[in-house]
């Protein structure tokens, strides 16, 4: 079994309107102002690659996928 990963958003650097929700709609939605809402912080194994892509695509480096559980 692989180590679990947890999503974290640095709320101060995040500017909203994000790509993250587009790349990882299973876990991230946007609120009415375009800021991300984490539906689930734990990244299931099958979404690992998508999560990695979303983290890499965040222009503000605000989205993180940390090792370990929340």
């Amino acid at each position: 079994m692989s180590r679990p990963r947890t999503l974290r958003i640095d709320r101060i650097t995040c500017t909203g309107q994000g790509l993250c929700a587009e790349l990882l709609p299973e876990l991230i939605a946007l609120d009415e102002w375009g800021y991300p809402v984490l539906k689930d912080r734990t990244v299931p194994d099958r979404l690992r690659t998508h999560a990695r892509r979303a983290v890499a695509a965040c222009p503000r480096l605000a989205l993180h996928s940390d090792r370990g559980r929340p």
């Binding site: 709320r11 101060i12 995040c14 500017t15 909203g16 609120d31 102002w33 375009g34 800021y35």
Partner: peptide
């Protein structure tokens, strides 16, 4: 006023 969800929400 640093975080969107707080600043706007």
């Amino acid at each position: 006023r640093q975080c969107g969800p707080c600043h706007l929400g």
